[in-house]
């Protein structure tokens, strides 16, 4: 069973539709009485300000549940801010005039930075092509495929070996990572038509 994280700011409906279409069993994180032992994978959908999402997962005690499951080797797929929240700090918290910048899950080393690359429009919103390294998540997906992005911040990983794809235009903008059972993508597979559905299928059917 897939655990779908409800962070209060995500486009959850899009995920529910896709998981139903793929005939997958899932449970929403705010549903009562789900059994931790029955979870075979976690999906953390995107959309949201880093600080607000960090606040919400703490408020609902989800941070501890996610850390527990990830440490038990349950596959995790983070999307957009669901990728960024894997890091400890984000410039988005610092730049949003919050009194207290909150921390993320600190599972991946590095920091989330504001896009200030000269050749990248910010917010980076729309379809862009990526350079893909061989990875289970991208099985049967062609190199240079277009995915749908919508973000103003990006993950600057300390360990470059975990990077599985970047923008073709600018290799500083990391579009996906994989560290052990943790998978994360900056783009929105749920909105990327065929290639996006393929990626979600790879995660739920081959990795989970």
């Amino acid at each position: 069973m897939i655990l779908l994280i409800k962070s209060e700011t995500a486009n959850l409906g899009a995920w529910i539709n896709i998981l139903k279409k793929l005939e997958l069993k899932f449970v929403l994180s705010d549903q009562k009485n789900w059994d931790v032992g029955s979870i075979s994978g976690i999906i953390f959908p995107g959309i949201g300000n880093f600080n607000k999402v960090a606040e919400n997962i703490k408020r609902f005690n989800l941070d501890k549940k996610i850390l527990f499951l990830v440490k038990k080797n349950i596959p995790y797929l983070g999307i957009c801010v669901g990728m960024q929240i894997l890091f400890k700090e984000s410039e988005e918290s610092e730049k949003s005039n919050y009194h207290k910048p909150l921390k993320g899950l600190n599972l991946i080393k590095g920091k989330v930075l504001k896009i200030s690359e000269k050749n990248i429009v910010c917010p980076h919103n729309g379809w862009n092509n990526i350079q893909i390294k061989k990875n289970l998540l991208f099985q049967d997906i062609k190199d240079n495929s277009d995915f749908y992005f919508n973000h103003s911040y990006y993950c600057n990983c300390e360990n470059k070996k975990i990077i599985t794809s970047t923008l073709k235009d600018n290799q500083n903008i990391v579009s996906s990572i994989n560290q052990k059972n943790i998978f994360a993508v900056q783009f929105h597979p749920e909105k990327s038509m065929g290639v996006g559905i393929k990626l979600i299928e790879n995660f739920v059917k081959k990795i989970c």
Binding site: N11, L12, G48, N51, K52, N150, H188
Partner: peptide
């Protein structure tokens, strides 16, 4: 929550300019 990725706000911002910052702080400017 039901699945939209972006919202377009027009008169709502004209009437209440503070709403821009309030929404950006929660949902992100994108």
């Amino acid at each position: 929550n039901i699945g939209f990725d972006k919202v377009i706000i027009n008169k709502g911002f004209l009437e209440n300019p503070k709403l821009i910052n309030h929404t950006v702080k929660i949902f992100g400017s994108q």
